[in-house]
Amino acid sequence: MQTPVFLDHLPDVNTVTGEKPARYRLARNKALLELMLDRDTTWTVRRNCPACGGDCAKSKNFSQTLLEFQRCSDCNTIYAQRVPSQQTLDRLRLDIISRKETGDTGNTREFEYISLMNWISLTEARLQRPLDKVVDIRFASHATAWPESTRRLSHNRSWDFLPLSLENAGFDNIGERLRNIAPRAVLMPTELDRVADPEALVRTIKHSVPAGTVIFIASSCADGLEYEILGADSPSFIPLDRLTVFSIKGFEALCAKVRLSVLEISTPGRLDAVILDRYFKTTENSNIPFWSGFFREADQNRLHDLQILLQRSLRSGVLRFVLET
């Protein structure tokens, strides 16, 4: 099992705290509030940690936008205490995509796309196994320029894009499409933290692809310094997009339960340092031992060093797993 570190320049914090992401956050939180006020909404209450199965009675709870969250005391995973149905979640996501308020900051995402493509290419080389048929699960729905980027830059690989759609709500359709395509690899960078039942989704993928299929999964990571310090106050903590924020230990436990072998774990998040920097430099009276002083005095070089240290320690706010069925 390998733990690569993805080194790159520090991003602009405005990709999270800028006006466009702020509008997106507002729209998503408004949708959540409407859902909570709607008496017809059905909610599934979670009594156990969706990652490790730990009892929620032992967890610490907090709330964001009136939605209650737990932080599992066994595995550190953060999860919403109750979740709407998958159909409802898909409908809300499609709604915001149709209004073009995806928080997508345009062509700056090309580097993100290249990072995903290179992740697959270099893993393929190290595994010495062709991953020439890839299925993308729902990422293209969020990132409209992504399919075009794969056509232009991802040679020697065929791509199928399984979109988010109302007719295809739930995971049955994902399973059916995967069985038909029989891919060598599956890429799913945006689903784990947004779906009602991540275990069901992971199981669906595992049981719908041939043995030896490589699965590339990315998600937010509860071990990240961003979430450890700011928790629900982090600008990236949008409840509907963070229904389950797995910790490394938590997602490893889920993989073991579903019998997926873990080939690689990393936390390639690049935003912890700049998000915390913005927070501490703009919040008066914050007095967290060590960190308040650290960030008030930190320059770009210190932030860059910190972000690399976080990655090397598997402590940044995004996780990536490479799994094998």
Binding site: P4, V5, F6, F111, I114
Partner: peptide, 9 residues
């Protein structure tokens, strides 16, 4: 210049 790099230890 300066592409994203992967570091393995």
């Amino acid at each position: 210049p300066n592409p994203e790099s992967q570091e393995l230890r």
